[in-house]
Computed example of a mutant assay.
Amino acid sequence: MPDQLTDKSNQILGISLVLASTVAFSLSGVLTKAIESDTWTIAVWRGLLGAILIVGYFFWQNRTSAAPTELRLGWRGWLLASVGSLASLAFIAAFKMTYVANVAVIYATVPFAAALLEWILLRQKVRRPTMIAATISLTGVLIMVGAGVGSVNLLGDFVAVLMMFGNALYMVLIRIFSKTPVVLAGAASAFLLFVIGWYFTDPLAVSLHDGLLLTLFGLSFAIAVILWTEGTRIITAAESGLLGSSEVPLAIFMAWVFLAEVPPLTSFVGGVLVLCAVLWHAVRDYQQAKSV
């Protein structure tokens, strides 16, 4: 009986941590649009604060380890960090150029793009449910992006699609480079944006208002990563994927509450298609995991 209570408590803790991480992640669009500074300035501050906190978390996590902490990334780690940096930069830029809803929905299709890249790069067979969900999601994304033709949002939607493939490639590289310290690569990714960004902007030339929001953005990013990492250690990947899908409606809700941003009808139609596909796929994975 005590073991069952412990397992139940751990599951509740894991669910709570992952849900809290989705709330923190869902603030990205609101904070990006609320900050008046340019994309590079946001990337520099988010990268600096994120790198510091993630590295601190890494050492705290390994504080009881008897083995010395491996700090070498090697070319694989730096390739992973570079891809992560480009994807993060596109993520911020997309929010600046199009609706939060569009970026959030397109980002939700990352697992399906990753499955496609795994098939191309690793010749890994794609499951039939994944193919169905990916096809529905692609239809939704095409509806959203197609509606932006001739409008100022088209470039932002295109950047969001590039961001989606960048994150998908990042996920696949994590699997290929399985022995690479992922947390350190994530910190290096954030730090790269900090270093490179100094050549494109003056990050110190920000208002007090932007400075506070930039600090909040960096903190929320790092906290989201840490909460998600700790939560996924406790619950199954299927549960984490299902809970993570709540980030899409949360991001759209946050944009409506804080920015009064209401995207066009086509964004809702495409978003509903993508969200239904993501939820159906996540629920199916969850049910299969429970039946094992």
Rank of each mutant, 00 (worst) to 15 (best):
F158Q: 07
G211Q: 03
S82C: 09
V248P: 04
T180W: 03
L250D: 00
P263N: 09
V141D: 06
V172N: 03
G211V: 08
T109V: 11
V83Q: 04
D157A: 04
P181E: 08
V100E: 02
A289C: 03
V225G: 07
L122P: 01
S137Q: 05
I52N: 03
A238L: 03
V225N: 13
V18T: 13
V105S: 01
L86G: 14
S240K: 11
I196C: 12
Y99L: 04
L250H: 00
F95S: 08
A93S: 12
K33D: 12
S137K: 06
S9Q: 15
A251S: 15
G29M: 00
V195M: 02
G166M: 11
D38W: 02
W40E: 12
L71H: 03
L154T: 05
S267D: 13
V206H: 07
F25G: 00
V248R: 00
G150Y: 05
L193F: 08
L142D: 06
T32Y: 11
R127F: 08
V195T: 05
L250R: 00
V183R: 09
G156Y: 03
S245W: 09
M97A: 12
A222L: 01
G29A: 01
V23H: 03
Y199D: 07
G270A: 08
A160H: 09
A147I: 05
V161Y: 02
L242Q: 04
L169T: 14
F165L: 10
A43I: 04
A81E: 09
I143S: 11
F95R: 08
T236D: 12
L19E: 06
P264I: 05
V30F: 11
M1N: 13
I143H: 02
